[in-house]
Computed example of a mutant assay.
Amino acid sequence: MRYYIDIEDRQRHSFDCEGIELPDLEAAKAEAIAVILDVCRDAFIGRMQDELTASVRDESGGMLFRAKLLLHKERLG
């Protein structure tokens, strides 16, 4: 089945127009988490607070899963 993984932060929303063939929803969930972890390496640089969301859609556009990653940095001392 083809799944689509959209990424958004507080400033941008990136829609997946191509999708990826995966065997099932569990594989799509794992892929969404891998994508959000990869994107956060660049997206969080220089920001004190932010969040990223990866949403998985099916071929009909139905939302199946959402993973959210939050970052809050504090300067101590």
Rank of each mutant, 00 (worst) to 15 (best):
A27G: 09
F65A: 00
L37Y: 05
G46I: 08
D16M: 09
I36K: 04
A34L: 14
Q49V: 06
Q49F: 02
L52E: 08
E74R: 14
G19I: 02
R10S: 15
R10F: 13
R75T: 13
D58G: 02
A54G: 09
P23F: 03
P23N: 08
E59D: 15
R66G: 08
E18M: 11
A32L: 07
G46F: 08
S55Y: 01
L22V: 10
L22F: 01
D24M: 05
I45Y: 12
G46E: 13
R57Q: 09
L37A: 13
A54Y: 01
A43D: 05
R2W: 04
R41E: 12
A54C: 13
G19W: 01
L76G: 04
G19A: 02
I7Y: 00
D50P: 03
E26M: 01
D9K: 00
A32D: 06
E31F: 00
S60R: 14
R41M: 04
F44C: 02
L64K: 05
G62T: 11
A32H: 08
A28H: 08
S14D: 10
A67P: 06
Y3I: 03
S60A: 14
E74C: 08
K29D: 04
M1E: 10
I36A: 06
I45Q: 15
L64C: 10
C17H: 10
Y4I: 11
V35N: 12
F15R: 15
I7N: 05
A34Y: 07
A54E: 08
D50M: 06
R75C: 04
E31Q: 05
Q49I: 09
G19S: 11
S55E: 11
R57G: 03
R57M: 12
E26N: 15
E8A: 07
A43T: 12
D24L: 03
G77Y: 02
M63I: 13
D50V: 01
R12D: 13
E31G: 00
Q49M: 05
D9C: 06
K73P: 02
I36T: 13
L70Q: 07
L25F: 07
F65T: 02
V56E: 03
R57S: 07
P23K: 01
K73Y: 03
F44T: 04
A28Y: 01
G62W: 00
E21F: 03
R12V: 09
I36Q: 07
M63D: 06
A34W: 03
L64F: 04
I45F: 03
T53S: 12
E18L: 08
E51P: 00
T53C: 06
A30Q: 06
S60F: 09
R10T: 14
A54Q: 03
A54T: 04
C40Y: 04
P23G: 05
G77M: 06
D38W: 01
R2C: 07
L71F: 04
E8D: 11
G61S: 07
E74D: 10
E59L: 07
E31T: 09
D16V: 07
T53L: 05
G19T: 12
H13A: 14
L70Y: 13
E51H: 15
S55D: 05
I20D: 06
